[in-house]
Write a protein that binds this DNA or RNA. Structure first.
Lengths: 208, 208, 208, 208
DNA sequence: TATGAATGAGGCTTCATTCAT
DNA sequence: CATGAATGAAGCCTCATTCAT
């Protein structure tokens, strides 16, 4: 879809170019997390990055591309943290527990990332076409569903619609984080335990 | 801050004033649901209401107040539908099931309301202070938690943090609706069953 | 193609609306004539009109619509002046002479209109689709060609391609005006005579 | 105003300097012809030349100078083609005919040059002062007028204002080319004949 | 010589809000 | 009560130009 990256017309990017892009993405992440999507103007972002507004236009096709990059980086980072932990486990039950635990754990130490991610996923609206995050989110749900299905085949989990439950779990985790964001007094570790426990009971085979 | 002239600030509002406000709120709801929060300008809303933009400013303090009213009405309507159904049940278990069922049921026949509610709750950002919806959502969660607690006392539910589970349930319902919105082929009734079942397993006392 | 005029959403326009549009069109005409198309920004136009930039946006869909209106008005005015004079004549020869004479005469007393017209016809480039002036110009040329053809049928004019000659005549008139614009010392009346004479000799039947 | 550093201002320019300038001028010509004046940004031109934007700034004072050079080269090339052909003829009548014919012929096989020339002559607007093409165009007209005058003295042409007719002829040729550009189906050779014929009749002495 | 990078001016639009009628 | 009209702030983007390397 995208025909040219920035600086327009070049394919390769120098080291300094990469650094600037990273810096701007970082600034954008913080800005979105702090003032919210709608107030995260290029002016704001530029100011926080200590650069001029047009530098952003120079390194990115436009605001849309910048925000997509921000989100993409957040997805990557999150998954890079979760994947080894989840697949370090062997049983489906342990994988699900680790999924929830690691996601909560990651975001609990990356508050800004979480806020930015939620804001962007929720608000981003490209000029044409549909949100590019739908796919990422869809893939994540599919991955989760796959684990659930395996657990059912192994007799670990009872019978339910894996797809529906995957969505429920995803939402529950996001909800827990949302609560924690809204209320600092919440102990996320306790919450995590409760959530893991809740899910465990909900999906585990009766015999288990 | 609030000017004491004009409708807001008055104690008594004429019938026509009430009617206009209702009409505008209705139009705003539809607009937000249809074109999304960010594209729901006063101009758009006014056009759909068949009135002039300034009428809105006349009847509402500003866009912020209007959207707050929209959300407030949606909360009220939803709760007005759910309350008798939930409390028509006696056991905590049945109440929870009815809570989930009735919420899904209400929104499934009020698609516009659901869309508008999500958009507003998600995007609304007052110029000063924090979101006024936090309270409403908080109250709803508290209500749900109360039922859960009762179920625990009655021995219906096992031991868990009622507050945390209340949030999880709320999120799960919203998630299910979101899925249904995104994918028309989903059968919401089936989904409702799965969700109720999921929650049932998660919270019901082992002995149950 | 255009779905709504300004103020957006209304069909009828009040008197004051009409007046403002006329005022803005007038200011735009002058601005384009004076500083040239490329420097005729909305800011410039607004300043000359003594109004705020956004007033233009309020009354017109955008810069494109404004300039189209400017051009449309110029075409209309020009033709309103020429038509009765041209068709006040009966013979094709006289009609052609009057065509040239009246066009020169009109623009010689509407310097600004001429400049604006040339600038817009030359520079205007709509965001999508092709120039809407092509048609107007085409029609004018066709009209001229029709007269030429009639003259040939009546034996007044010799044999030539009417379409090609129509273009030549049109260009010649524009060229003459361009000269006059560039050099104030030129006497346009003399020039007009020369031009009429030139064309006369070029097209008149040998026997004539 | 002009800074004395760097290439411009130097008396001697290296071979590589000359080559670069030529390359840039060529790219600019093509760009202007293809995408039109207003979209012919330095970025576009640089991209087509396969060089970086700043190279242009290095070799030319600015965009203005570049475009002036482009136009100057086009004028030169055109005249280099026309001159021997026109003055290969002896009689004024033949010279005029050859003038028209060779100009049409040159541009018909240099479509890009014609497009670029028209775009630049039409759109170019220096930051200060007036268009530098006025002079070139003026000289061409003067040259043409000189031939016309000679034709009158020789009794070949009838009495008319040579200056005015020179302009008319120039415009007519440009108009014919414009038509041809706009409509590919036009046979330029036929058109050329019609034009030559038209002019012939217009200026030739009655006795001729 | 060449260039990647950065800049700031300026352009068009959208929008909530205000005000006189 | 209602509204047409006007406004100014703010947003994003494009572009010629400059500068250090």
């Amino acid at each position: 879809m995208r025909t040219e990256s920035s600086p327009r017309g070049r394919k390769r990017s120098s080291f300094i170019e990469q650094a600037r892009r990273a810096q701007i993405i970082e600034a954008a992440t913080e800005t979105v997390a702090e003032v919210g999507y709608s107030r995260a103007s290029l002016a704001e972002i530029a100011q926080r990055a200590g650069i001029s507004k047009s530098v952003i236009s120079y390194h990115f096709e436009g605001k849309d591309e910048l925000l997509e990059q921000v989100a993409a980086r957040l997805f990557e980072e999150t998954w890079a943290y979760m994947e080894p932990r989840v697949y370090g486990e062997t049983s489906a039950g342990a994988q699900i527990r680790e999924w929830v635990r690691s996601q909560l754990s990651f975001f609990s130490s990356h508050r800004v990332s979480f806020l930015a991610m939620v804001e962007i996923v929720t608000h981003y609206q490209p000029k044409e076409g549909s949100s590019p995050f739908a796919q990422a989110i869809e893939e994540e749900a599919a991955e989760l569903a796959r684990i659930l299905r395996k657990g059912q085949q192994d007799g670990e989990f009872r019978d339910f619609d894996p797809r529906a439950v995957a969505v429920i779990i995803g939402q529950a985790v996001e909800g827990a984080l949302g609560q924690w964001i809204a209320d600092d007094t919440i102990d996320l570790d306790t919450h995590a335990l409760a959530l893991v426990d809740f899910i465990d009971h909900a999906i585990r085979s009766e015999r288990g």
